[in-house]
């Protein structure tokens, strides 16, 4: 099947019901997307499918055919002179020194990025609701709240 990931087209030999997470990680080697539960509970495996956050561990690869997949590796942009420019969410997670082990953080950042796309100026309560289904065992929750709020600010500054 053909999958489009971070604007690149991959031809992959995968069974239609192979879960997208493992096609991305194991077959294609994009290991930035993480596995935590395989059951749609923890959010570590969150990617974007046509811009919407999605749990790739419970999504068959065939469901992504013909759609645009974005993973954490595709969140940053390249500037004209080839420099990596971090997405506001990535910048904010570093600025607030949010990650500890960071195993959950690809999923946290992908969730946050999709959320802010739809809600660029969220309230704290909206951030709480949007981020509440992503587990962080290291306990970075207070910083995740701050990081998402900061990411919204950075995006506004960039847009202004």
């Amino acid at each position: 099947m053909q999958l489009t990931i971070n604007n690149q087209v991959y031809e992959v030999a995968a069974d239609p019901d192979d879960m997208l997470l493992w096609v991305i990680r194991d077959t294609l080697g994009l290991t930035g997307t993480k596995y935590g539960c395989g059951a749609g509970i923890c959010g570590s495996c969150t990617i974007h499918l046509d811009g919407a956050a999605l749990r790739s561990c419970i999504t068959p690869a065939s469901a992504a055919e013909g759609k645009a997949i974005t993973t954490i590796e595709g969140l940053a942009m390249l500037s004209d002179d080839g420099e990596e420019v971090l997405h506001p969410v990535q910048q904010a997670f570093i600025e607030t020194q949010t990650p500890q082990c960071s195993w959950c953080m690809s999923g946290q950042m992908m969730t946050a990025a999709a959320f802010l796309e739809n809600n660029p100026q969220p309230t704290d309560a909206e951030i709480e609701a949007a981020m509440n289904n992503n587990i962080c065992r290291c306990g970075c929750y207070a910083r995740i709240r701050a990081a998402v709020a900061r990411a919204a600010e950075i995006a506004q500054e960039g847009a202004a």
Binding site: R25, G29, L30, T31, G32, T33, K34, Y35, T71, I72, E73, L75, A76, E84, L86, Q90, F93, I94, Q97, P99, S102, W103, M105, S106, M109
Partner: peptide, 16 residues
């Protein structure tokens, strides 16, 4: 953190 927020950091589960 730079390697971690960009998905480049390699953990045991990512070894290939």
């Amino acid at each position: 953190l730079r390697d971690k927020v960009t998905g480049r950091a390699i953990y045991g589960f990512d070894a290939r």
